[in-house]
């Protein structure tokens, strides 16, 4: 075999590092959007590698819905300490109060849509010109058409028709004042690629990604953790099940899966065997309409 050969994970990593460096070089005030999930953890790893041994060049920005898994918050705080990075947390709660937003009601009232307001306010407050996010094109069909450098107008809106052609690996990050760019360095990764990379790099993850016992209720075939943030009805049956999470998001709209996987190897094997997509299995919010993601993106979402 060719001596100078990169396997697929090494190729994806090299591409991700290249994109991270383009962001640091092209923008005045870039930030990394950090949720505590595996995708944003992968971004942190790429950025660490891109600028080693220099210091981590981006603040981590957490748009906090208030509906967090405690394990993800603990992980976040430890990581920030270890990186010596700046952490900026802005709470959806505050946006709701200050802007007199109406909270959605219902059984799994999610603040997912309201995050947009907090995100845009945060971008405005810190004058961020680029926000690095962990979206992947395999997640969903609106994502499949988005650029790696995705220009958003002052309202944060994605305009699919006006996207710039993205040729070779030349990234045009020039913007007008008030605009900003969302950058997706792991656009070309699939869920399995992310897991395989985490395994290869042996990156620690929040404990909720591994099997643990938790009180849950079943809702339309999905297991939702019992918490103060969801409404438990009389008809709901609370069960204690051994579960893990495939994605880490807002507690109200992220479902768990039954699992006995305790190690990265076991999680990867389960992902390979699964016949249900990540968003289909774990995201309650995408089921609302077929074009839910497209709508959210146009409204300024990640």
């Amino acid at each position: 075999m060719n001596k100078y050969y990169l396997n697929y994970l090494e190729q994806l990593e090299a591409e991700g590092i290249y994109i991270m460096r383009e962001v640091a070089a092209q923008f005045e005030k870039p930030a990394l959007l950090f949720s505590g999930g595996k995708d944003s953890i992968t971004l942190v790893q790429l950025a660490k590698k891109a600028f080693a041994p220099g210091k981590f060049p981006f603040p981590l920005v957490h748009i906090d819905t208030g509906h967090n898994f405690k394990e993800a918050l603990d992980y976040r705080d430890n990581l920030v300490k270890e990186l010596g990075a700046e952490l900026i947390v802005r709470k959806v709660e505050d946006s709701i109060r200050e802007r007199k937003l109406t909270e959605p009601k219902g059984k799994f009232a999610s603040r997912n849509w309201l995050q947009i307001h907090t995100l845009l306010d945060t971008i405005e407050e810190f004058k961020f010109d680029a926000c690095i996010g962990g979206a992947r094109r395999d997640e969903e069909k609106a994502r499949a058409k988005e650029r790696i450098f995705s220009v958003r107008d002052a309202f944060g809106q994605w305009e699919p028709k006006l996207q710039r052609p993205e040729l070779w690996n030349i990234y045009n990050g020039r913007i007008h004042k008030g605009e900003n760019v969302r950058v997706f360095p792991i656009s070309n990764w699939t869920e399995l690629d992310v897991w395989n990379y985490i395994r290869k790099e042996n990156i620690p993850l929040p404990s909720i990604y591994f099997a643990h016992y938790r009180d849950v209720i079943a809702h339309e075939g999905q297991l939702v953790a019992v918490s103060d943030y969801i409404q438990i009805d009389e008809t709901d049956v609370i069960m204690n099940k051994r579960v893990r999470y495939r994605t880490v998001g807002d507690m109200t709209c992220t479902a768990a899966v039954e699992s006995n996987a305790e190690t990265l190897d076991e999680v990867v094997n389960e992902i390979i065997a699964t016949r249900i997509s990540e968003r289909g299995e774990t995201r309650i919010d995408d089921k609302v309409t077929e074009a839910a993601m497209e709508d959210r993106k146009k409204g300024g979402y990640f």
Binding site: R137, D138, K141, A144, K145, P160, K161, Q163, P165, S187, N188, T190
Partner: peptide, 8 residues
Amino acid sequence: TIDVAYRY
């Protein structure tokens, strides 16, 4: 049709 879609 919006130019290029990527599939994996």
